[in-house]
Design a protein around this nucleic acid. Structure first.
Length: 561
DNA sequence: CGTCCACGCGCC
DNA sequence: AAAGGGCGCGTGGACG
């Protein structure tokens, strides 16, 4: 594979490059060049660049207009390989990997840094340890051998390749940004919240609602302070455990209606209000920092700006450039389709082999009619629901789709027992950890108690914490395998758009937005459909399961739903 | 002054 | 219909 080259930026601003041989080691002399972008631009025949960290290299390339076809991110692969090997939490830098390889002292990872609003900073400190190309290649070659030692080497290779592709997409999206009309945004805020008073007071509508809440209680109440609201309800003879909306909603009291309205609008103001606009929108673009593989399940996260939680009403501000369109594509019932593909349940595969409404089909087969109940039951099975109607219908689900339910039940049991579970491609859920494991705690992994070790698993008799781990693992295999598939989809779509003006500008778990000239829109719609099919085949192999998308060609994001 | 945490809620 | 999985983030209050 002479088209695979390694690349290592040097301290002095130059770069080392070398072609790699079949084993992953340099197949020729290491070349030194003064200019990173020129070195890459001058070698269009290279189809995969192997480097330490995409966030170190790729923003610099994009800044000079250089895109690459593929890459291999060594530190990202290290994270996935460590996880697969059950060594989650060990330092994942290339320097640490080299130290493990040579038996030296393993350096801890550099500390994380959060982004400033509007900055283009990467997650890791810029002074992260550089490795000479020869060392980097040594780590890479060993990683190739570690792929071979996994249960499904071809899947693991696909996973690390897909994650690297995701990092290219994320970096490109960080650069392009999401088209955003500040004028429309301000107009929406004005319609919802009313005028802003000078001097930093609440906008008119919020002030009015706060007054209505106070009037209903007969005393001054700050609706944004949960403790104050709980006290006010208590004085009115109503005891509540929290001020969460679902708990407040059912209460019969005149303060409830304005209170809920206040909370909704307050949320908009603090999370996506005028100061958000000031901080995050520049030159007609919202530029959050997308981080591919930011979670253990493989879902992406964004750093700053709350890009994955844009309220529906605010989406009116996402507006295509003049003459351009947004192609908004949403995968239909992604999670049950993924469950069908990974469990190979015959009944569910048959249902998921059609493009129609999957929940209606499940309902027709299992519950004679009610689509909403079918959806609840399926999601309940995936999330590990413990009570309610979903549980009642779970029994029917189990009868009709036994292998599918058994698949997530097995994952839940493994999680409760502290064993590893993996996605279809081999992304691995962290094992049970002790309560003082900071890295796992940070990642939200429920801790295991000491006394749980060695106990036999009995359904329904696990400790609260063990059950939480079970639900985590149960969800992990589906959500994570869905993330695997979504990465392959993004990679295929990116490739299809490479020769167009079209740009991927947004990605949210099962939804992608492409910004393109109006005349390219139909080609993009086709590309999405083809990418979905290709991703399904690549990820899960031969499967009857289909992955249809709902696509809309719009000028405004809000018009897509 | 800063850091940390619970809360609550937006999205999937 | 019920409160189960994954996140980010602004706020207020506790604490140092």
């Amino acid at each position: 594979m002479a088209d695979r080259w390694a690349l290592a930026p040097a301290e002095d601003g130059g770069v080392e490059i070398a072609p790699l041989g079949p084993a992953g080691l340099p197949a020729g002399p290491v070349l030194r060049e003064a200019d990173l972008a020129a070195a890459v631009r001058g070698r269009p025949e290279v189809t995969r660049w192997v480097w330490r960290s995409t966030s170190e290299v790729y923003p610099r390339l994009l800044a000079t207009g250089v895109r690459v076809e593929r890459c291999y991110d060594i530190e990202d692969a290290e994270t996935l390989l460590l996880g697969h090997e059950g060594r989650y939490g060990e330092p994942r830098s290339a320097a640490a990997a080299l130290a493990r390889l040579r038996g030296g002292p393993v350096p801890p990872d550099p500390p994380l840094r959060s982004a400033e609003p509007g900055s283009q900073s990467s997650l890791f400190e810029p002074q992260a340890v550089h490795l000479p190309l020869a060392d980097l290649a040594e780590v890479y070659a060993e990683q190739q051998r570690r792929h071979d030692r996994t249960a499904h080497p071809e899947r693991m290779r696909l996973l690390t390749a897909a994650e690297s592709a995701g990092m290219l997409v994320a970096t490109e999206m960080n650069r392009s940004g999401l088209p955003w009309s500040a004028d429309v945004h301000r107009q929406v805020l004005h319609e919802l919240l009313g005028e802003r008073y000078a001097g930093g007071g609440e906008p008119r509508r919020l002030a009015e609602l706060a007054d209505e809440v106070s009037a209903a209680f007969g005393r001054r109440v700050r609706p944004d302070l949960p403790a104050d609201v709980i006290k006010a309800f208590a004085q009115a003879g109503i005891r509540i455990g929290s001020t969460r909306r679902w708990e407040i909603e059912s209460i019969d009291h005149p303060a409830v209606k304005p209170l809920i309205e206040y909370k909704k609008l307050y949320r908009i103001r603090v999370a996506h209000g005028w100061s958000w606009l000031q901080d995050w929108v520049r030159d007609g673009r919202f530029r959050p920092e997308f981080l591919a593989g930011g979670t253990v399940t493989g879902r992406w996260v964004t750093n700053g700006g709350g890009a994955l939680q844009i309220p529906k009403v605010i989406r009116r501000a996402v507006v295509a450039d003049p003459g351009w369109r947004l192609v908004v594509a949403d995968a239909d019932q992604m999670e049950p389709r993924v469950l069908a593909a990974i469990s190979r349940d015959p009944g569910l595969m048959e249902v998921a082999g059609r493009e129609g409404d999957l929940y209606q089909s499940v309902s027709d087969r299992a519950f004679s009619g009610d689509r909403a109940q079918a959806k609840l039951a399926v999601l309940g099975a995936v999330y590990g629901q413990t009570s309610g109607d979903g549980l009642k219908n779970l029994a029917a689900l189990r009868r009709r789709f036994p292998r599918a339910v058994a698949y997530v039940d097995d994952a839940a049991r493994a999680g409760e027992e502290g064993r590893l579970v993996r996605t279809w491609l081999g992304r691995t859920c962290p094992p049970a950890v002790t309560a003082d494991d900071d890295a796992a705690e940070e990642a939200g992994i429920p801790a295991v108690e000491d006394e749980a070790a060695g106990q036999e698993w009995v359904p329904g008799y696990a400790s609260t914490n063990a059950r939480a781990r079970g639900r985590f693992a149960r969800n992990f295999v589906v959500q994570g395998s869905a993330a695997d598939w979504a990465l392959l989809l993004l990679a295929a779509l990116r490739k299809a758009c490479a020769d167009m003006a079209a740009e991927l500008v947004f990605f949210q778990h099962d939804e992608v937005i492409v910004h393109c000239p109006e005349k390219e829109a139909e080609a993009v719609v086709t590309a999405i459909r083809e990418a979905a099919d290709l991703a399904g085949r690549l990820t899960f192999g031969e499967t009857p399961v289909r992955f249809p998308f709902t696509t809309a060609v719009v000028e405004c994001y809000a018009d897509a739903k």
